[in-house]
Simulated assay, not measured.
Amino acid sequence: MPELLFLLLPVAAAYGWFMGRNSLKTKELKGRADIARNLSSGLNFLLTDQEDKAIEQLLELLDVEAATIDTYLALANLFRRKGDWDKAIKIHEKLHQLKLPKVKAQQIQFELAKDYYAAGLFDRAEKLLLPLTENEQLREGALKQLFSIFLSTHEMHKAVALSPAVAQTQSRSLRIALANMQVQQLEQQPDIASLSQLAEDYPQAIRPRFALAKLALAKQDTATAHGAIMSILKQKPQWSADLLPLLSQCQLEPEQWQQLLAQLADKHQNISARLLLTDWLAEHQSLSAAEQYLLQKLQQQPNIRLFQKLLQLRQQQSAMAGEVLESVAGLVNAYLDSKALYSCRSCGFKTRQPYWLCPSCQQWESVEPIAGIDGR
Rank of each mutant, 00 (worst) to 15 (best):
L9D: 09
L9F: 15
P10Y: 13
A12N: 06
M19E: 14
R21T: 14
S41Q: 07
G42N: 02
N44F: 15
D49M: 07
A66T: 14
T68E: 15
I69W: 04
A76R: 01
N77D: 12
L78Y: 11
R81S: 11
K82E: 15
G83R: 07
G83D: 13
W85E: 15
L95R: 01
L100A: 02
L100R: 03
V103F: 13
A105H: 11
E111D: 15
Y116M: 12
A119W: 09
L130H: 08
Q137C: 09
L138Y: 10
R139E: 08
E140A: 09
G141T: 04
L143Q: 11
K144T: 14
F147E: 14
H157P: 00
L162M: 09
L162V: 03
S163I: 10
S171F: 07
I176W: 01
L178Y: 02
E200S: 06
P203G: 07
A213Q: 01
A213H: 03
L215R: 01
L215T: 00
L217H: 04
D221N: 06
A228W: 02
S248Q: 14
H268V: 13
I271S: 09
R274Q: 15
W280K: 08
L281F: 07
A282E: 13
S286H: 02
A290P: 09
A290E: 08
L298N: 06
Q300K: 09
Q300T: 10
P302R: 03
Q317P: 04
S318E: 05
A319Y: 03
V324G: 01
E326Q: 12
G330R: 14
N333V: 10
A334R: 15
Y335W: 02
D337V: 05
L341G: 06
S343R: 14
W356E: 05
C361V: 08
Q362I: 03
S366I: 04
G372A: 05
R376G: 12
